[in-house]
Design a binder for these strands. Structure first.
Lengths: 230, 230
DNA sequence: GTCTATAGGTTGATAGAC
DNA sequence: GTCTATCAACCTATAGAC
């Protein structure tokens, strides 16, 4: 335990404040959109005055970009982790369903950051949007490969355009924040419906009608995982 | 031809200006979101100064609410019109696919108003949102009935929750404005993919594998229809 | 690290001339 | 109908005390 170690572990107080600011910004991004998110409101939610916010961040845009950046990263890491948890004999469609379910869970209940990143995409200023697209490259490749593997395994309706199908389904889950109400149905229920829908949509007429095999939801939906460090 | 008739037909000059304002607002709503849409920018796009805008509308919110209102109405009327054009022997799934395709076409190329209405839903102030939900009641009933008819006809995977399936698929098409690029694929192509995806998703294992029947895209996609009067 | 006070710009909206 | 001129309110951001 060197002195450096101790210092690294104990710069917690200011990190907590910084995190409160980001939490507030993520919440507001979801409710008000990019242009509607005001620094003064962030400060109020974080129980601070405006100048304290500027002690931690250079500008309003710097706060919002960090929220979006974290949200994208959390979404990607979570999908990767869930895919690793699958049994090695999982089919390509099993893996695709698990990935969409992981993403949906993130958007709906796990991370306001991810929900904010998805909902504000179209509103970001040009330079921020360019940097986001740059960072999302690995994520985009992952989704493309997931589908491509399914196509090559013959598990996916060959009449579908893979890119359009992928984007439509990602849109379906990203949009869910607009209408999902936990009071109307549990998270488990909506994840099950989403997986069934994704499996049907991609398999198409290739789906076997025998119940309990291809149509059964895959991969146990274990409750929640520890929130990864920001 | 009474004097009233003449007057009604010729109050065009101011109607055209009013329409330019609404067009500008719809465009900005899509690009900047609800809170990001500024009256000064609406005025510039409409080639006016700000006070001229206030000659036509009582407030900024009145402009934006009218855009959303028109967008919702156009989407609903267009789906209804397309459903009427279907042959009487169209299956429930045929009707559902045609409805989603009509909605998607509206969002992507026909109406910036509809795209704006869909994208800003979650950002509207509480009172505006309440009035919108009130106006959307007929539209919501239409979509619910379309799916319900398919369930009762045995054409839809009984393991799907009808409401969640409907909302996921509407989300998929509403989100398409975020990623669709006409340079990467024609409107006809994306409409075909969307219909294939919707049909697969809802039919599930019930889909027959015989090509050209249940899996074939339904209802000719006639190019474009005359823009309805605002 | 957090505050009070404030600078400088933009916004929604109106008054009143033409 | 459309404009110039203007207002109060609010915004992002900073200076400087503690």
């Amino acid at each position: 335990m060197t002195k450096a170690d101790g210092a690294e572990r104990r710069e917690r107080k200011s990190d907590k404040t910084r995190r409160r600011i980001l939490d507030a910004a993520a919440d507001l991004l979801n409710r008000k959109g990019f242009d509607g998110t005001r620094v003064s409101e962030i400060a109020t939610l974080a129980e601070l005055r405006v100048p304290a916010v500027y002690y931690y961040f250079d500008s309003r845009e710097a706060i919002l970009e960090e929220v979006v950046n974290i949200g994208d990263r959390l979404a990607h890491e979570n999908v990767v982790r869930r895919l690793k948890e699958l049994p090695p004999d999982a089919s390509a469609l099993d893996r695709i369903c698990a990935a969409f379910a992981a993403h949906l869970e993130m958007v709906l209940t796990e991370s306001a950051y991810t929900a904010a990143a998805m909902r504000t995409m179209g509103q970001l200023p040009a330079d921020m949007r360019a940097r986001q697209l740059d960072r999302q490259r690995a994520s985009g490749r992952m989704w493309r490969d997931l589908i491509q593997t399914g196509v090559e395994a013959g598990e996916i309706d060959p009449e579908l355009d893979p890119r359009a199908a992928r984007m439509f389904l990602l849109g379906a889950v990203n949009w869910a924040t607009e209408w999902w109400n936990p009071a109307r149905g549990s998270l488990e229920e909506i994840l099950a419906t989403a997986q069934r829908l994704v499996r049907n949509a991609l398999a198409g007429p290739l789906a076997t009608a025998s119940p309990g095999t291809a149509a059964a939801p895959p991969a146990a939906l274990t409750p929640v995982f520890a929130p990864p460090p920001l």
